[in-house]
Design a protein around this nucleic acid. Structure first.
Lengths: 203, 203
DNA sequence: TTGACGACATACCGACTGGTCTGTATTGAT
DNA sequence: ATCAATACAGACCAGTCGGTATGTCGTCAA
């Protein structure tokens, strides 16, 4: 049983997905070029159309198999069993911001947000699969706040769904405006204000 | 001095700008087609390249002459002399949301945000001219909060620039997530949470 | 050994892109 | 009336796009 040489479909497919994610992240979906993707993946059109039905299908796969899992891992999982969402959200945000700045993610912005802004009005499948990510993130935050209330770490009169919806929106907006301003200082300012808001939800 | 018949450059130019705004708002800048723009404007390529250097130049003009003034009129001007930003922001948001829903702007989102997300990493001129709008909006909000503090309508310990940066980001994020979810109810939830936040800044 | 199928590579296609070129009608100044 | 300059119209261009058709090579079952 050979591990791999050159002829390994899964490997090829994954390389295409990775290259496509990169291309779409940098140039958007419409601006993204299949020719550049096959170049980046070190393969050809034949391979792409063998593994995917077309550009859109490739786009859906990128959302489903690259963006969504990565998003869960970075944002959702750490909050899965939190009973003190205010403290934990602050920590997650700090980490996330640091990571964004470090690997230059500030330049190209949040992949979820980017694709959503560009494609959700143009393609219903894109909208739905991206909305899934937002819904999951909102539900995770809301559930954490509900637990936080029970644990006495959050004021009893806050509405978890409302607060969660607002926090998710604020996060998306912060990523977007920070990307546009290219100003780390502004990102810190906004984070500080968000933290103040979170603290205002303490009992 | 004839007012106008058919040969009126200003009119033609304006029609091109309007059609371009529409096209870019619907399909983004990269996805926007010059052919569709000339179709929508009822003119030809010759006219477009007579009035503008090219697609990018047309895009800058749309930002400068259509989006920016319109944005000021809707968001900035009503806050220009406010001494009670919390009350006034809530009113402006309510109106803005209602208008968005009414004319279907919820589908295509905020033009500033859309263009910024798509083009700011790809073209420095786009980024700068869009950043101007954000900066102006932040400064307007910050100035209003500064006056609000003096007038005793806002807590003395809030930092106007920080709060302004956060509010602007939250607004952008709310518009974006609402557009993606296509859910008016969600927009109301987020608005409610934003209002709670604003109220928490009262003395 | 052979046949069949999966996994690509390559050449190619029509559609469409932004942009140019040339011609022409209109305008205002002289 | 004349003459430039302006304001377009429309044909046309090279290049790129996503997508397809066909061929080749490796792998595995029989």
């Amino acid at each position: 049983m050979k591990v791999t040489t050159n002829r390994s479909p899964e490997n090829t497919r994954q390389r295409i997905l990775d290259a496509a994610f990169d291309e779409f992240h940098k140039n958007g979906f419409q601006g993204g070029s299949l020719n550049r993707i096959v170049g980046g993946a070190g393969t050809t059109k034949g391979a792409v159309f063998h593994h995917f039905k077309g550009k859109k299908d490739l786009g859906y796969a990128v959302v489903r198999e690259i963006i969504h899992p990565h998003f869960n891992q970075q944002w959702s999982d750490p909050l899965a069993y939190s009973t003190d969402p205010i403290t934990d959200l602050k920590r997650i945000f700090r980490q996330g911001a640091k990571k964004k700045i470090a690997d230059g993610g500030l330049v190209h912005g949040c992949p979820v947000n980017n694709l959503a802004q560009e494609m959700s009005p143009l393609d219903e499948k894109f909208r739905k699969s991206l909305e899934k990510i937002y819904v999951a993130w909102r539900e995770t935050v809301a559930a954490a706040f509900a637990r936080g209330i029970k644990a006495g770490k959050v004021r009893k009169d806050v509405s978890p769904p409302k607060v969660a919806a607002f926090i998710v929106a604020a996060q998306a907006g912060m990523a977007g405006t920070a990307k546009n301003s290219q100003d780390e200082e502004l990102l810190l300012q906004m984070s500080h204000a968000l933290f103040d808001y979170l603290d205002s939800l303490k009992p």
